[in-house]
Design a protein around this nucleic acid. Structure first.
Lengths: 253, 253
DNA sequence: TAGCTTCAAATGTACAGACATTTGGAGGTG
DNA sequence: CACCTCCAAATGTCTGTACATTTGAAGCTA
């Protein structure tokens, strides 16, 4: 039980005060084991059930708390952070859905400076960067050449990671706590160089999708990525509609 | 006043019955001039105000009706139909934003049958189709080869349209009242054929984006479109984030 | 006519009470 | 132990009432 003081004369409605108070208590972890029912809250806050329900309405709607008839109410599992889905994720999900096993051959995993990439990341030209270069395979066949640069200041722990089977973003989060929250992608059609064709084992008549991506986390750029995907066997698909906008196939929800 | 019969013993709650009934009446245009207040609905339906408010909650949340303290309630302006933004729209918007004038050379505008396309549209192989083929120019330079097929049964009025400067979808809506509401796109990287290279006036070392699109309106496929965009000068860009998902640059909002 | 007051309409907020329905566990029974 | 019954807890639904606040228009006044 918590001593609660509601301002019954002020301008903010009671239900809003209750909601904010509950949010604070949820944030403090007070309800991790048990969330009180409506009637308990009625007693605790000294307001009517209607007021409590109004306070809970938003919390229930956005999934902060879960309430069902008969069941014990509970605080929702800490909102799963949905990884933003980009063109690459969509591609790899499609490969996965096709039942093809995916793995990678790590060609480079080192620290060096690259003035061009540093500039794109908004960093000094001499800033050390972690550079990861992989050949991605789908069902044993080359799918893409994947090059990523990240600021070494934060990404240095990645040097010890095994990137043959795990995703960059999983490793990044594990090793540094960072998650790419948003960013920008550019998709263009290019002709692979002879060297790239050789590594992708595709013929001269094959085009490729070039996907470049600048990813941000906590307000700063944290990755610059350039992926070259064979155009003869893989494509991007997307559904569009007025209601849902543009959704790459393989996106959740 | 409408004679309303609510089922007070059935399984569907009163507020849901009221909501559905109101939705139907809104759809019938009954409230175009005046939407009744909560108390009027209480009287009319013979339920409590709380029930009416619950019924109105969703309608207000999604903007179907607008209610503010003191003001007369009203049915919202018929939701502006937002044209779904696809890769092509995004591309052309980017060209526009770059200050380049856009126009087209119409290479074909005719009715014929095409078994392959008809199948993709879910039609009989012999179904007549309106076929429009344009070379799209940006600032006088070739940008894309744009081919569209639409069922002639609905799209025949388009044969009289001038497609040199106007968009397909504007003409489609003007001439037939149809709007593409949703659909699916596929983006892949290809190597243009020699003939296509000649028309796009690009060299042998140039790849292209192949964008195919199946568009639906009123529950049936209404367009199959195949656009080949020069890869050397144009790219797709998109912003992604956990909150907003994947949004092609040039998208509204 | 400009400005003010007054008032009806409409929604927002809040309380109290009642019954229905669903769930899960406690406790008894074979 | 398996199964059943019963019941407490929790939310869903519904009614009735009351007062506060905001808006816009009608009506009055200088």
């Amino acid at each position: 039980m918590v001593a609660v003081e509601l301002d019954r004369s002020g301008a903010t409605p009671l239900w809003r005060q209750v909601r904010e108070h509950l949010l604070a208590r949820i944030g403090a972890g007070e309800f991790d084991r048990h969330f009180p029912g409506e009637l308990a809250l009625v007693e605790e806050y000294g307001v009517s059930r209607q007021t409590v329900r109004q306070a809970l309405r938003d919390l229930r709607a956005d999934g902060t708390v879960v309430a069902e008839r008969g069941r014990q109410p509970r605080v929702a599992a800490p909102a799963e952070i949905t990884q933003p889905v980009g063109a690459l994720h969509s591609l790899f999900a499609a490969v996965e859905a096709a039942g093809l096993a995916q793995d990678s051959v790590v060609h480079r995993l080192e620290v060096h400076a690259d003035a061009l990439v540093a500039e794109r990341l908004g960093l000094e030209a001499s800033t050390p960067l972690v550079h990861l270069e992989r050949l991605r395979l789908a069902g044993g066949d080359p799918l893409a050449i994947d090059r990523v640069w990240l600021p070494a200041a934060t990404a240095r722990p990645l040097l010890d990671a095994d990137f043959r089977h795990t995703s960059l973003y999983a490793e990044l989060h594990r090793a540094t706590g960072l998650r790419v929250e948003h960013g920008r992608e550019e998709v263009r059609a290019v002709l692979p160089t002879a060297a790239e064709r050789a590594r992708l084992r595709c013929g001269a008549g094959t085009a490729a999708l070039s996907i470049t991506r600048l990813g941000w986390a906590r307000g700063v750029p944290v990755e610059w990525r350039h992926t070259l995907v064979r155009g003869d066997r893989f494509a991007l698909t997307a559904d569009f509609s007025g209601r849902d906008g543009y959704r790459l196939t393989g996106s959740p929800r």
